[in-house]
């Protein structure tokens, strides 16, 4: 046996087992690296956050900054705890405004984009106006909405919508339009009708772009809702901010900001989760590009 295995087989034979080992090792290492990347993606920013908050706490105590200027985090936390019920109530109201405004921008924006895409004369007529309308400072329109729609939920929803719907329209329209010519040719040669082509090919092709628009839109909807509450609010976090400001309760002001930030993150997270469910993995990694490529 030793004679025969000496030449040819010695080179060929031992490989499979050792290659298997190398494979297993690399695979293990990859899984480990992914795990540690996932953990560090959470732990690192959390550490920085804690450090910043600690520095803030220390600074405001050491330098004796007046609390109405910059209350230390512990005081903010205490105030939030004290006003927990109020914060939750106002958060719910603001959430409703954000959610409705955002939904409205989808309900109006997506079909509008479809129309722009499917009907070129309409696009030619509407597109320039749509772009130009972005020059109007929408915050300045807010008082007008109050005059028209009163002080209830509606004007806030409309302002959130007005600010949020533009990216939905533009991203959807661009997503639909930017498709390889050959994909359309392929559909035609397979005998797919215009409707089937739209839903089987064009729309899925546009989804990554649409989701990118939705993510911008949801953050703008938060801004819109707060602006609405600033201008004519009887409730909501925006109103709470004004009230806290009026009574020089800076701790509560910070509490409101924290609550708003939290809302924004949650809404963004919801979109991201839906995106993850709808799109295949690679499209998402393209969207979040920078992080994945690290």
């Amino acid at each position: 046996m030793s004679d025969q295995t000496r030449t040819g087989e010695v080179q060929a034979k031992p490989d499979p087992s050792s290659i298997g080992e190398i494979e297993a090792r690399l695979q293990r290492r990859r899984i480990q690296r992914e795990k540690s990347e996932r953990i560090s993606a959470i732990v690192y920013p959390a550490l920085v956050m804690v450090a910043l908050i600690g520095a803030w706490e220390a600074a405001s105590r050491v330098f004796g900054v007046p609390q109405f200027l910059l209350p230390p985090p512990t005081v903010v936390a205490a105030s939030m705890h004290e006003h927990a019920n109020l914060l939750i109530k106002e958060s719910l109201l603001t959430s409703a405004e954000i959610g409705l405004g955002f939904l409205l921008s989808i309900v109006v924006g997506v079909p509008l984009a479809f129309a722009i895409f499917l009907w070129p004369p309409f696009a030619r007529a509407v597109y320039p106006l749509l772009i130009a309308s972005q020059a109007v400072p929408k915050v300045a329109v807010a008082p007008l909405f109050l005059v028209w729609f009163g002080f209830g939920l509606l004007p806030k929803v409309l302002i959130a919508f007005l600010i949020a719907f533009f990216p939905v329209v533009i991203n959807t329209a661009i997503g639909l339009a930017s498709i390889e010519r050959e994909k359309v040719y392929l559909a035609q040669s397979m005998g797919l009708g215009p409707m089937a082509t739209f839903f089987k090919i064009r729309l899925p092709n546009a989804l990554p772009s649409i989701f990118a628009g939705l993510k911008i839109s949801i953050t703008l909807a938060v801004v819109g809702a707060v602006v609405g509450e600033f201008v004519g609010g009887q409730g909501g976090l925006g109103h709470l901010l004004l009230v806290a400001n009026g009574s020089m309760d800076t701790a509560l002001l910070f509490g409101g900001i924290v609550a708003l930030t939290f809302l924004g993150v949650v809404f963004f997270g919801i979109i991201a989760v839906v995106e993850r469910m709808v799109l295949p993995p690679h499209a998402i990694s393209a969207a979040t590009g920078a992080r994945e490529s690290m």
């Binding site: 390889e180 050959e182 994909k183 040719y185 392929l186 559909a187 035609q188 040669s189 397979m190 005998g191 797919l192 089937a196 089987k200 090919i201 899925p204 092709n205 989804l207 799109l279 295949p280 690679h282 499209a283």
Partner: peptide, 28 residues
């Protein structure tokens, strides 16, 4: 529509698997 066509580039749908891409023709 009585043809099978192969373009110069693959022209696959990114959101479908290899099998899904082949099946697109069958579905259509």
């Amino acid at each position: 529509t009585d043809i099978g066509i192969v373009f110069q580039s693959p022209v696959l749908l990114e959101w479908r698997t290899a099998l899904g891409n082949v099946m697109l023709q069958a579905e259509a």
